[in-house]
Computed example of a mutant assay.
Amino acid sequence: MAHLLIVEDDELLRDGLSAQLKQAGYLIDTADDGEAALDYLHKQAFDGVLLDLGLPKIDGLEVLQRLRQTLPALPVLILTARDGVEDRIAGLNGGADDYLTKPFNGDELLARLQAMLRRASLPAFGTRTSTIHPPAHAGGALRVDPSMPRAWLGEVAIELTQREWELLALLVRCEGQVVSREAVLAAWQSDAGEGGALASNALEVYVHRLRRKLADSRLNIRNIRGLGYMLETARP
């Protein structure tokens, strides 16, 4: 079930969209201004956003630009009364995936939304962040960008080397499962950058570094003797 955020200041339209999309099987959260939208996006993971441009507090285009800094591949469908060509260009250049002007047909909205989410799930669009949600008091969600060495704990960026990011991304993809030392070393050896193959004992150094960088969360890299490593949420 896809989780969507509707950002719309018109209460009647917002409630109507929410009801329609819930009926279509989506999980919905709503925000009535740009500030609330950014707060939602910092705290939760979404599969897509329906974004109005004419928002109070923070304009929709600024919301789009700011979310693109940390969520570069989150699917965004703009819904707006601004129907000029220059407005559509500004929205698409700002990072929107699609653009629908008000008033719009409900069936067309569903079709465009489904197409946008379907495109985002294809391998060519594989830059969406992987997310793990530890308890709320544990520093926020861990988000890892699978296309470049970037990760965040809540709103705070984690500084990672290429090797650390590769290890963390692999552990996140296999959360709750044991990742063997051989699997990590094979992934590293397939990368021509940063020195190529590494000695097995160097892996412990990177695991130690990652543990320190995750210290502000309750996420832990557990050493499973004789098998490998597993990313898990530590007990309180």
Rank of each mutant, 00 (worst) to 15 (best):
R14H: 07
A115P: 02
D98F: 11
T80R: 08
P135Q: 04
R218K: 15
G154S: 05
G228I: 02
L171M: 04
V207P: 06
L198H: 11
Q114T: 14
R181L: 04
G140T: 04
A73D: 10
L12A: 15
P75S: 03
R119F: 00
A37I: 04
P103I: 03
L117S: 12
I132T: 15
R143Y: 11
D39P: 00
L100V: 12
L12W: 03
N201E: 14
T30H: 05
V49Y: 06
P56N: 08
A81L: 07
T233W: 13
R66A: 09
A151S: 07
V76I: 13
R211S: 09
Y206M: 05
A202Y: 08
P123W: 14
S180Y: 12
A45N: 08
A19I: 11
I158C: 03
M148P: 07
Y40V: 05
A157M: 13
D97H: 03
R235V: 03
P75G: 14
T161F: 01
P103N: 03
Y229D: 01
E194W: 08
K57H: 08
L110G: 02
P56V: 08
A36P: 00
G60D: 04
E11A: 13
E8Q: 14
S200F: 01
Q162K: 11
V178Q: 03
A2Q: 10
G106S: 09
A24V: 05
S180R: 11
V184E: 02
G140H: 07
G126T: 06
L100K: 04
G193L: 11
R112Q: 01
R118P: 01
A141W: 02
G54F: 02
E182H: 00
P56K: 12
F46D: 01
N93V: 00
T233N: 06
Q189H: 07
P149I: 09
L214M: 14
P134N: 09
L231A: 07
R14F: 05
M116V: 15
F104Y: 12
G126D: 05
P135R: 10
P123N: 15
I158W: 14
E166L: 15
D39K: 11
F125L: 07
M148K: 13
L122K: 14
A36N: 10
R88V: 01
L231G: 02
R143W: 12
G54Y: 01
S130D: 13
A31K: 03
K43G: 08
M116H: 02
H133A: 13
A183N: 04
L167D: 01
D47R: 06
A151Q: 02
R68E: 00
Q162I: 14
T127C: 12
Y99G: 09
K57W: 06
V184W: 00
L21E: 00
P135S: 12
A151M: 06
L13A: 08
L214Y: 06
A19K: 07
R163H: 11
E155G: 04
A215R: 11
